[in-house]
């Protein structure tokens, strides 16, 4: 068992386990914390795939930003509606489990995808990503779109979060 396989096993277990825990745990806040494990596991998988910048970004933004936001939200609203309806949950699980099994079989049947022996050595990706994001031939325009998207989301969120402002303004 090489180190790569070991790392993969560990991180994928973290990712899938965290996701499963988030799915099945009764407590809202616990599932949010379980998500942390999932995010970190995905970050580890990114590392395994040679995407170091992406891995760190995943930790910084998902764990440090988005998850904190969700935890904040969970602390601001009372924990309610915790228990899922039994029938619905069973249905969801049946529907969820079936495609997974089929997916596994379908993909394994085509295991010729992506020959691991031809993989290039992973190398630092920061420079390439930076150049790609800031060259006009590359991803500059999507990059600017993303910044506009974030600005719009920021303004929208601030507007929505102004508590009771609509009530005061309404005639």
């Amino acid at each position: 068992m090489t180190g790569e396989v070991l790392a993969f096993s560990l991180f994928s277990a973290m990712a899938v386990g965290g996701a499963g825990l988030a799915l099945f745990h009764r407590s809202a806040i616990h599932s949010a914390f379980a998500l942390l494990a999932s995010f970190l596991g995905v970050a580890g998988l990114y590392l395994n795939l040679g995407a170091d910048f992406l891995a760190v970004t995943q930790v910084l933004l998902y764990a440090g930003g988005i998850l904190v936001l969700y935890l904040f939200g969970l602390m601001l609203v009372p924990p309610e509606g915790e228990a899922p309806r039994p029938g619905r949950r069973a249905l969801a699980l049946v529907l969820a489990a079936a495609p997974v099994a089929i997916f596994l079989i379908a993909f394994l049947a085509r295991s010729s995808w992506g020959d691991p022996s031809r993989l290039p050595e992973p190398e630092g990706t920061v420079r390439g990503i930076g150049l790609a994001l800031l060259t006009p031939d590359g991803w500059l325009v999507p990059f600017e779109y993303a910044s506009i998207l974030l600005l719009a989301a920021l303004v929208g969120a601030v507007h929505l979060a102004r508590r009771s402002a609509p009530k005061d303004d309404s005639p």
Binding site: R88, L91, A92, L95, I102, F103, I105, A109
Partner: peptide, 24 residues
């Protein structure tokens, strides 16, 4: 919302079955 999510799952199921059959 949750009905929609269930439908998405069903679609995923359909898709994977189709993929599988194609693979065979």
């Amino acid at each position: 919302i949750q009905t929609y999510a269930l439908l998405t799952l069903a679609g995923l199921l359909l898709l994977s079955v189709t993929l599988l059959l194609q693979g065979e």
